[in-house]
């Protein structure tokens, strides 16, 4: 198509350049152009949060961001949060506390939770519940997700204290 634009994105620390129609949604650019399939499409209306990524330091629903809006942005997805040998503390805690079932919401949920713990390193249960209210899970009833996030928060704080 003739109306394609040149897009630059830094995703998980890696620079990408590609052509895309301005109307293309960030989620499809990530999933189909860059093969970053961790973030999922659940609703395309910003309600479910399965597509949550961090863009320029903020949690966004990548299903309602045009790739044109994201041009030049730094994006972090679940793929940027840990490695198979060194999982992110949230990934460890979701495994430990059965914070997931079908796994479809999990990448968005953990990506959001990681940002939440940066915004508020000492959340109460209420803070966590409010902080992830933009991410829907159909399987777990959230109880173990909340537990996982609170446990990750205290582990992070304990390791910070130990470092000081």
């Amino acid at each position: 198509m003739s109306n394609k634009m040149h897009v630059k994105l830094n995703v998980n620390g890696e620079d990408h350049e590609f052509l895309a129609e301005p109307r293309e949604l960030l989620i499809y650019a990530l999933r189909e152009k860059l093969n970053i399939t961790g973030p999922h499409v659940g609703c395309e209306t910003s309600h479910c949060g399965a597509c949550t990524v961090t863009m320029n330091g903020k949690s966004v629903k990548s299903c309602t961001v045009f790739v044109a809006q994201a041009n030049g942005a730094e994006v972090t997805t679940i793929e940027g949060l840990g490695t198979p040998d060194a999982l992110h503390v949230l990934q460890e805690n979701f495994k430990e506390h059965h914070g997931l079932q079908c796994g479809f919401c999990t990448p968005g949920m953990i990506t959001r939770a990681a940002k939440l713990l940066e915004e508020n390193p000492n959340p109460t249960e209420e803070d966590v519940r409010f902080g992830i209210a933009g991410n829907i899970c159909r399987c777990t009833g959230y109880q173990n997700i909340v537990k996982s996030i609170l446990s990750a928060a205290s582990e992070l704080n304990a390791s910070k204290e130990a470092a000081q």
């Binding site: 499409v41 840990g82 430990e96 796994g103």
Partner: peptide
């Protein structure tokens, strides 16, 4: 603990889409 969770927590599930 669930063996499925390693791939799901790392965004490496393989769904139809």
């Amino acid at each position: 603990k669930r063996v499925e969770d390693s791939r799901f927590t790392q965004g490496k599930g393989n769904y139809v889409d």
